[in-house]
């Protein structure tokens, strides 16, 4: 029955998404540079949220140090560009691959840790990396000031420098990532991930290679975060350890849970809430973050499943929680 309704719904849904995408294409021409910039940062957060969603949302691994991978991408781009002068266009994929590789190396020995042990270890990794960046080993990371003078990306004769360029860069990458992740969710791998999240022991018993699947999630998530970091580095031209703190990881973690675990539209809604809510609360001046904290509690209390929970989650978990 569900399959039929989904098939019927399909053209209409495609129409809505098409219209939304068109709107996104027109947006920067109507909105002006300020809002285009805001939208670009929003896009970077969506990208980061999607990357963490693979780890936390799909597989249910508690990662509260995701900013570490974001930092790895940004610093890879920053250091390789300023020290060796490698063009940032090349560094975009390189940062992704390196961050993914580090993700593999860092999480391989700890992948067997359960729930909260993994959580503290990922926080630990985040802190280790942040302090290392501040302490400036071998004069590479520039200490608390960070890396300065990162070059912009050059595509042929086009230098990606204006807000609108970055907007489209982020839009294209995010759209491709969303499409890829939607397919991945429905694939064998995506189903295996969800299975592990719901019941690891049963998943193992069904012949899923739990360890490799978890590692794969970490590598993909870290790699994507690395790409986001690379974009951030070329956009800002300056990166410093301040941008990659534990607080940043908490914001990303909140985006995933607030949006709805394992839900791609949820990540977008979650990022919107985490970015736009503080802006909307600007009228409250110094009480802004006070209301923000309270709003987080209220949203969770009234929608513990997230603002836009995934369909599969609803279908599977709905029956169980109704009781």
């Amino acid at each position: 029955m569900e399959v039929v309704s989904e098939a019927k719904e399909f053209p209409r849904r495609r129409l809505i998404y098409g219209a939304l995408f068109l709107l996104l294409l027109i947006f920067p021409f109507k909105a002006g540079p300020y809002w285009t910039d805001v939208a670009t940062f929003f896009g970077i957060y969506v990208l980061l949220g999607l990357s963490l969603n693979i780890i936390v949302g799909e597989v249910g691994l508690f990662n509260m140090g995701h900013a570490a991978f974001y930092a790895l991408g940004a610093y890879t781009t920053g250091i390789l560009n300023t020290v060796w002068g490698i063009p940032t266009v090349w560094l975009l994929p390189v940062s992704g691959i390196l961050a993914g590789g580090f993700g593999y190396l860092l999480t391989r020995p700890i992948i067997h840790l359960r729930g909260d042990y993994l959580l503290i270890v990922t926080i630990g990794l985040n802190e280790i990396l942040r302090i290392t960046l501040i302490n400036d080993p071998w004069g590479l990371t520039g200490g608390p000031n960070g890396v300065l003078g990162i070059k912009r990306m050059r595509l042929g004769s086009l230098v990606i420098s204006r807000p609108i360029h970055f907007y489209f860069l982020v839009l294209i990458i995010t759209t491709l990532v969303v499409m890829a992740l939607l397919r991945l969710q429905r694939s064998r791998i995506g189903r295996a991930w969800n299975y592990i999240r719901e019941d690891e022991v049963a998943a193992e018993a069904m012949g899923i290679d739990v360890r490799s699947m978890k590692l794969l999630a970490f590598v993909l998530g870290a790699g994507l975060a690395g790409i986001a970091g690379s974009i951030y580095a070329t956009k800002m031209m300056i990166i410093s350890p301040e941008s990659f703190t534990f607080w940043e990881s908490i914001v990303l973690f909140t985006i995933v849970v607030l949006g709805g675990m394992g839900s791609i539209p949820g990540v977008i809604v979650g990022s919107a809430v985490m970015m736009i809510l503080p802006e909307l609360l600007r009228d409250f001046m110094q009480y802004r973050m006070l209301f923000f904290g309270a709003a987080m509690v209220v949203m969770m209390v009234f929608r513990p499943q997230g603002l836009w929970p995934s369909k599969r989650w609803q279908l599977e978990m709905g029956r169980e929680t109704e009781e």
Partner: peptide
């Protein structure tokens, strides 16, 4: 309601 919703709620309290 799951493991993670209370964690985010706790983070909200913390910020508050």
């Amino acid at each position: 309601s799951g493991r993670l919703a209370p964690v985010v709620s706790a983070l909200g309290v913390s910020i508050f």
